[in-house]
């Protein structure tokens, strides 16, 4: 049932990413809702949930992207998985911690994309970092933190259970 919900979430997020998100462009870059969703679910749901949602989102994004068919599957799946690992080792997830986590994961994901673009010169790498990676990372972290701030109470209650309850 949970995975069906993830599939439905992916069916909402990816078309939203490709159609309406051009209204929230900053410096030519849109936030990566797929990465943010995979990370948030990973943080609060664990590695498996993050990985599964990431794989579904990545698969859908690959269908609607000009890039190779593997790249979003690996980056989004990996992002959900890493977020799950990170979330497991934190007793309390605060907005600051979540922002830092998103910055790290979004940077890694952007690094994979930059590598896959096969830049020929150092100048091209810098152009990619300046024009896309930095804006993308900031945007993803800000949107992720804002979503967390909006739904903080609910997610915290879901995630935190006492040892006695188990």
């Amino acid at each position: 049932m949970k995975f069906l919900l993830y599939a439905l979430l992916a069916l909402m997020v990816v078309p939203l990413q490709t159609t309406l998100l051009h209204y929230v462009i900053i410096l030519g870059v849109r936030p990566d809702l797929g990465l943010i969703a995979a990370c948030l679910v990973g943080f609060f749901g664990g590695e498996l949930d993050g990985l599964i949602l990431g794989l579904i989102l990545g698969c859908f994004q690959d269908i609607l992207s000009a890039g190779d068919l593997w790249i979003n599957v690996v980056t989004k799946g990996g992002a959900g998985f890493l977020a799950g690992l990170a979330g497991r080792h934190m007793a309390h997830i605060t907005p600051a911690v979540l922002t830092i986590g998103l910055v790290i994961i979004s940077s890694l994901s952007s690094g994979v994309f930059l590598y896959a673009m096969n830049p020929a010169t150092v100048d091209e790498i810098w152009v990619g970092v300046r024009s896309t990676v930095l804006v993308q990372v900031g945007f993803d972290a800000a949107i992720g933190a804002a979503l967390y701030a909006m739904f903080r109470r609910r997610w915290s209650d879901d995630r935190m259970v006492t040892e006695g309850a188990l």
Partner: peptide, 13 residues
């Protein structure tokens, strides 16, 4: 009907 799903490719759907 849409733009590329990532910021890394200049594409349209």
């Amino acid at each position: 009907i849409g733009r590329d799903a990532t910021n890394w490719y200049r594409g349209v759907i």
